[in-house]
Nucleic acid binder design. Sequence first.
DNA 1: ACAATTACCTGTATGC
DNA 2: TGCATACAGGTAATTG
Length: 292
Amino acid sequence: MPELPEVETTVVSIRQHLRGRRILKVWCDAPKLVRRSSFSVFSRQIRGARVLDVTRRAKNILIFLDRDRLLLVHQKMTGHFLIGKWRVRGRRVTPLSPKVLFDRVNGYIHLIFYLDDGTMLGLSDLRKFAKVILGSRHEILALPELADLGPEPLHKSFTFAQFYKTLEGQKRKVKQVLMDPYVIAGIGNIYADEILWAAKIYPARPAGSLTLSELKKIYKAMRRILKEAVRLGGTSVGDYRTPSGKEGGYASRRAVYGREGEKCPRCGTVIRRITMGGRSAHFCETCQRAPL
DNA sequence: ACAATTACCTGTATGC
DNA sequence: TGCATACAGGTAATTG
């Protein structure tokens, strides 16, 4: 699932291909991915737009275009971008359609942007949960899913004092709080489990019950793990790939996520999985002891 | 006002 | 073997 490190990896990668390029046209076989306007309006408005820059906010990808347009893409669970070329130095290298070309690598491309240098940017999404919205810069940035987001966990200004303030008084379970994008942006199920394992905190502890030293451990683990995962290109679970088609390098570092029944890398206890609010939490009951 | 639950999807895994 | 059902999960929408 694309979380902060996967989205950051995606943004850094596609930025190189998109910056300065013009979007010639867009193709789609799942028009419901486009929200707040019909696909035909979306298609008409994006045609001819030039990409100024690509950035990230939480798990949202922000593609800044000329003429005051801003394209928001949220990959949700199975969405991911793939880069393809259909021409090399002005010559076609294949008679196949781009869709067929892409499908040889990944069968779930539902949206393709055709760029003016022959590059294709494909959005793969097995479950079609991804969200694409085009609007004016102000319109998009004012959407609650952007405007109301919590702080970026890796930002320099997000100090421990800030972190403490955001968790203080929270009655919910610490894992649920870490995953709430309106509290902290960008942490999902994989990294919440990994962070709590590293910090040796039981995931169902009420956030407000954590001591200062426990919160400090979580904060430090959060910064360290997210930075390391960004450095390694994220984690591949399921069919997630980086835009160039590679698996994320953090997958092999996973200590607990998706490892139910395997041994804790720290103490050898068998990893357990419990359900919390319809979501699974993986942890080591020896390292992450439940109170009483 | 807040917290908990459901909807959105479909491939994969499991059970009978 | 085949069919039905459960499960996965980010977040908006809905319900409690």
